[in-house]
């Protein structure tokens, strides 16, 4: 599974970090970092993260 975050839209809300901590995290500078090609077993978590992003910045590309 491929995950793309539109960093122009992302405002570091961090909702995705709660929903899918295995895929999204904040780096030391407080900016969002993420795993671009997570294991398919994490699909539910990642879909949930995409749902809760207030800026709708997360896209899942199969």
């Amino acid at each position: 599974m491929k995950v793309v975050v539109d960093m122009n839209k992302c405002q570091d809300h961090g909702q995705c970090v709660f929903a899918a901590p295995d895929v999204f995290r904040f780096d030391e500078a407080g900016r969002l970092a993420y795993v671009p090609d997570p294991d398919d077993a994490l699909r539910d978590e990642v879909e949930e993260a995409a749902d809760v992003c207030p800026l709708q910045a997360i896209r899942i590309e199969d």
Binding site: Q11, D12, G14, V17, F18, F26, G30
Partner: peptide
């Protein structure tokens, strides 16, 4: 700022 929001999240 976003730092404050992150601090709030720590209480989640």
């Amino acid at each position: 700022g976003t730092g404050a929001a992150a601090a709030a999240a720590r209480h989640r």
